[in-house]
Simulated assay, not measured.
Amino acid sequence: MDSLRNFFGRKQILFANILITKRTFARLAEVGKLESPKLGGKYDTGQLILHRIFGYRGVILFPWLARVYDRDVPQHREETEDDINPGVGKEVRGKTHTFYQVLIDQRDCPYIRAQTEAVTFLGNQESSRSLYAIPGLDYVAHEDIIPYTSVEKNPLQHELFDKFLEYDKHRDPPFVPQETLRAWQKKNHPWLELSDVHKETTENIRVTVIPFYMGCRESHANSVYWWRYCIRLENMGQLSVQLRERHWRIFSLSGTLETVRGRGVVGQEPALTKTLPAFQYSSHVSLQAPSGHMWGTFRMEREDGYTFDCRIPPFSLESKADHGPATPPQ
Rank of each mutant, 00 (worst) to 15 (best):
R113P: 00
W295N: 09
F121C: 02
S36R: 14
K33R: 15
D172K: 12
H142N: 14
G40C: 02
R217S: 12
L239D: 02
N85L: 14
I18A: 06
I134Y: 08
P173A: 10
G237Q: 05
L160M: 12
L48Q: 03
E81H: 07
I60A: 06
V92W: 00
G94S: 10
R113Y: 10
A141Q: 09
A66L: 07
P135N: 14
I146W: 02
Y213D: 00
S150M: 08
S240G: 14
I250C: 10
R5Q: 12
H323D: 07
D196K: 04
S223A: 15
R57D: 04
D70W: 05
V285Q: 11
V59E: 03
R27G: 11
F279S: 01
M1K: 04
K320S: 06
K90G: 00
E193I: 02
R10G: 11
E203W: 05
P37Y: 05
I53M: 09
H189L: 15
I18C: 04
L233M: 15
S252N: 00
G123D: 14
R299G: 02
M1Q: 04
I20K: 08
T307L: 05
G296A: 12
S127H: 13
T208F: 03
F164H: 03
N154V: 09
K11W: 06
T180G: 07
Y213R: 10
S195T: 09
E166T: 14
Q185D: 00
L137H: 01
R232I: 00
P329W: 08
L257A: 14
N188E: 03
E143M: 12
M236A: 13
I231H: 02
H198E: 03
F161E: 00
F298W: 11
E78F: 14
V176Q: 06
D70F: 06
P177R: 13
K199N: 07
T96A: 13
R52C: 04
P190I: 02
E193R: 03
H293M: 10
D168Q: 14
Q12D: 08
Q115C: 02
D304S: 06
D108G: 04
I146Y: 01
K153A: 09
E126V: 12
D322L: 06
T273F: 05
L50V: 09
T202M: 12
T21S: 10
L50I: 12
E303M: 08
V68M: 04
K274D: 13
D162Y: 03
P328F: 04
E218P: 00
I84F: 14
F7S: 11
D168I: 05
V265C: 09
Y167W: 14
